[in-house]
Write a protein that binds this DNA or RNA. Structure first.
Lengths: 154, 154
DNA sequence: ATTTTAGTTCTTTTGGTAAAGAACTAAAAA
DNA sequence: TTTTTAGTTCTTTACCAAAAGAACTAAAAT
């Protein structure tokens, strides 16, 4: 499969992975670009190859690529004497994703704790549940961070 | 604060928590309803109280409530001789949220593994990275599940 | 029996985002 | 110097989801 075409199976995987990426908040175009770069049997693709395979407009391609670049989901390399950029999916950014996830939890918990502070002491049972939740999240953040660290220095 | 009105601080927390909930995929209205039920100093609120405090239309209120009910984010109780329902935020559904999160990871990994199977063996370095990622996710699912179990039977 | 309550369901409107298309730009090639 | 390449940026269009509003419904109260 050294040409640019995709097999049926690859197309299927491209769509499946694309949908998953959309659920992670990417636009359809960005999701497909990242999926394409993950699925295709090439080290990297140019702007126009991406454009053609996905039949996207130049602007959609450009914006999708730039989004993915800012998120660090993709990168590019250049070739001496060529102006084109060769894009590839960064498979090593998932550490950051997991850490960002933890940040999300932290923010969630900050608000939860503030809510608890403001609540009337009268709704005791309910407050206890909130307290328990914040404690669990603190615990989860700590333990999850540990397991990630353990994996990294394994 | 036994009346229905919110303090400034509560309004602030309502908005802040609402935004977080939106990021978790809820519509603005549903996010605010759940935030309101979390922030307010009452055990529960009726349809019309929610409606009035959030100045939502009946349909928006109805749909938001029903969404939150299906997701099990809120519940309601009834009072003898009354037709109204009294809604409250379920603070005990987070276990399910975490488990759903794991399901998401599992699905992600399923696709990733399929992609790896389909890939040409030529891009060895890249394939190794994918493999590592899937292994990490399997590991993370397992360890995170343990974390949750440990907390539950603590 | 009819009116009110407590919503639900249907239809329309609004608002926002993604993608297309076209115009533009800067560097390199011819 | 003009043309081509490799995109970017701006404007317009298309679509979709959320909310509003209005019509409807079923139970309860009067």
């Amino acid at each position: 499969m050294e040409n640019g075409k995709l097999t049926e199976k690859q197309k299927e995987l491209l769509e499946a992975y694309g949908v998953i990426q959309e659920q992670f908040g990417l636009s359809p175009a960005a999701a497909r670009v990242n999926a394409l770069l993950t699925v295709i049997d090439k080290k990297e693709l140019t702007f126009d190859e991406i454009r053609e395979i996905l039949t996207l407009s130049k602007s959609a391609t450009s914006n999708a690529i730039n989004n993915l670049m800012t998120l660090n989901y993709i990168g590019y390399r250049t070739k001496l004497g060529e102006r084109k950029r060769y894009f590839f999916s960064r498979m090593d950014q998932w550490k950051e994703s997991f850490k960002k996830n933890m940040t999300g939890f932290r923010e969630y918990n900050k608000v939860m704790k503030d809510i608890l502070i403001e609540r009337t002491p009268e709704t005791k049972e309910y407050n206890t549940k909130i307290k328990e939740l914040t404690e669990f999240i603190d615990y989860y953040i700590e333990e999850a961070t540990k397991i990630i660290d353990d994996w990294e220095k394994r």
